[in-house]
Simulated scan of single mutants.
Amino acid sequence: MLLRIVDRLEEILIATMMAGATLIIFLSVVQRFAVGIPLLFPIASQFDMDWAQELCIFMFIWMAKFGAAYGVRTGIHVGVDVLIKRLEPSRRKWVVLFGLLCGALFTGVIGTMGAKFVYGLMGTDQTTPDLEWPSWMVYLCIPLGSYLMCFRFLQVAWAFARTGELPHHDAAHVEDLVGEDAEMGAPV
């Protein structure tokens, strides 16, 4: 139950950041060009969107950190497994587990270093240039995203140790999509 909530929150955060950044960039571009035509858009010159670029950069950084964790969970990260597939199954299992645990260790270390960095920033008055937010709020994505990714590596490693299966992404499959072929009994 808790895992499903975390999964959904992760997906909602990524989708919201992506949609929000896209909308903000669109509105910023419209506003920028509308200012040049004051007769058609007299209100555009009253809105200042100088902050939009900075906010979108922050949103894409947060989206990337949480998107990496999502990639580990769903198996969409790029992996080079040519040599691993040539190993005999008993050795392959240990090599894959070693790789997953190394990923967990690395992201755990990055999360801890990020947490120490954010904690150090919290005691300062550093702010972002345009939005004037406390800098620690922006950098908080490093420990949060890294710890989530560490958790996902451990989750995948645990499932792999029990079942021998890794998550994999089927580009041809769209969840909850029922097409004409599915109604006739053929796979979509």
Rank of each mutant, 00 (worst) to 15 (best):
A19F: 14
E175L: 01
L97W: 03
D181E: 13
Y70C: 02
V29D: 03
F98G: 07
V138S: 07
T107S: 12
C56D: 10
L100M: 08
R4K: 10
G75T: 06
K85H: 08
E180F: 11
T128W: 11
V30A: 15
R32E: 06
W94F: 13
L166D: 01
L9C: 07
S28T: 14
E10I: 00
M59T: 07
P167S: 04
T128D: 13
V29M: 10
L55G: 05
I142M: 13
S135D: 04
I25E: 11
L154G: 11
I43V: 14
D48M: 03
R73V: 01
L13N: 04
D176I: 00
F117N: 06
E54D: 14
M59I: 08
S90N: 13
W51D: 07
Q126E: 13
T22V: 14
F60C: 09
F117V: 00
A19R: 09
M149Y: 04
W51P: 09
W94A: 08
G103R: 09
H169I: 01
L131K: 06
F41A: 15
Q53E: 15
L97V: 06
V96Q: 04
Y119G: 06
P129L: 13
P134T: 05
M63P: 05
L3I: 02
G20I: 05
G108W: 08
A15V: 11
T16M: 12
H77M: 09
T163V: 03
T107A: 08
M1L: 03
L101R: 04
A104L: 02
Q46M: 07
P143R: 04
I24M: 13
F106P: 00
Q126I: 12
Q155F: 05
A68P: 08
F153V: 02
V78H: 03
